[in-house]
């Protein structure tokens, strides 16, 4: 067990911090400040009649304000038994000096009414790491807050931060872009293809023994057994054999929706690629397309498809 893990176990074992009472009871002026700033026009927070109609039996506070009531304020200090503060100190000491929040999951058991006075407790759920992240090596620290009115639990929050050691190159934006695309693995059997796309050639493997055309390629001809692959340069034209309009989830380096087409080339082999230059709803099986070479960077050029000019699309 590392020292960070030991400390995390110790802090987690201490359990919940003592309840900390909010500075103010739930009150209309703070709600009004909040709805004004956020731009929330929901009348149940400000109009007693609307609140009544919605079944609240009086004005209520916006659920998303729950954390606001117990914020430390301008000169606030963490209480000595606050597990998040303790864990941050441990990680600071271990060299993980930067912090960024990653998740906030709030559950509201009921709406709060004016005059109710909440208190909050915090406990450490878990500390996971060290993980390599885009920001640098770090630990994910998850805490759980529970809000009470008296003994009643009214809301809970699972809150996660990444406490990290900033990477050598700060804010590695330049690195983020190439990492955003999924790159092909290239080996002896496939490098001719990617060398071709870089030159603006769509290459199809051709067996040096029997002439079989094959894509995706491989080292041994399944027809004649020869291990003499060569290639020809395709005319780069064909038809959509099938296609997908991708909506979810998000794909690195692409905005959704986008179209991926399985194209049957005139030479007879099929090949996948993104299809651009046409609305997704206008794509159909049989659409005539041609290849376009899209340069990602100096090391990678992707073959993509577009509708063929004069192809009757």
């Amino acid at each position: 067990m590392t020292r960070v893990e030991e400390e995390a176990a110790r802090i987690a074992a201490a359990g919940e911090s003592a309840p900390r009472l909010a500075r103010d009871p739930v009150n209309l002026p703070m709600v009004l400040n909040w709805v004004e700033a956020i731009g929330d026009a929901n009348p149940v927070y400000t109009d007693p009649e609307a609140a009544e109609k919605a079944g609240h039996g009086g004005l209520v506070a916006p659920p998303a304000m729950i954390q606001v009531w117990t914020m430390g304020g301008l000169h606030g200090q963490r209480s000595s038994d606050d597990p998040l503060g303790a864990m941050m100190a441990v990680l600071d000491e271990a060299g993980y000096t930067s912090v960024v929040a990653t998740n906030s999951d709030q559950t509201y058991h009921r709406y709060l009414r004016q005059g109710e006075h909440v208190a909050v407790t915090t406990r450490l759920d878990d500390v996971v790491g060290p993980k390599r992240t885009a920001l640098g090596e770090g630990w994910f620290v998850t805490t759980r807050n529970t809000w009470y009115v008296g003994d009643e639990v009214v809301a809970e929050m699972r809150f996660r931060v990444l406490k990290f050691r900033p990477a050598e190159k700060p804010a590695a934006v330049a690195e983020a872009v190439p990492a955003a695309v999924i790159r092909p693995a290239v080996n002896h059997d496939t490098e001719y293809f990617w060398q071709g796309t870089a030159l603006g050639e769509l290459r199809i493997q051709r067996c040096g023994g029997c002439g079989l055309l094959r894509h995706p390629p491989g080292p041994m001809c399944p027809e004649c057994g020869a291990t003499k692959p060569t290639h020809l340069v395709s005319d780069g034209v064909g038809e959509v054999y099938s296609y997908v309009v991708h909506h979810h989830p998000r794909v690195p380096g692409r905005a959704t929706p986008f179209v991926v087409a399985l194209v049957e080339l005139d030479e007879g082999v099929r090949m996948l690629g993104e299809l651009t230059g046409i609305a997704p709803d206008d794509v159909r099986v049989g659409l005539p397309v041609e290849v376009v070479f899209t340069k990602v960077d100096d090391d990678l050029t992707m073959p993509t498809w577009r509708p063929r000019a004069g192809g009757g699309s």
Partner: peptide, 12 residues
């Protein structure tokens, strides 16, 4: 206004 909010889970 009659919709009741029960949870807000966000990833930043």
């Amino acid at each position: 206004p009659e919709a009741l909010v029960r949870a807000v889970d966000i990833r930043l």
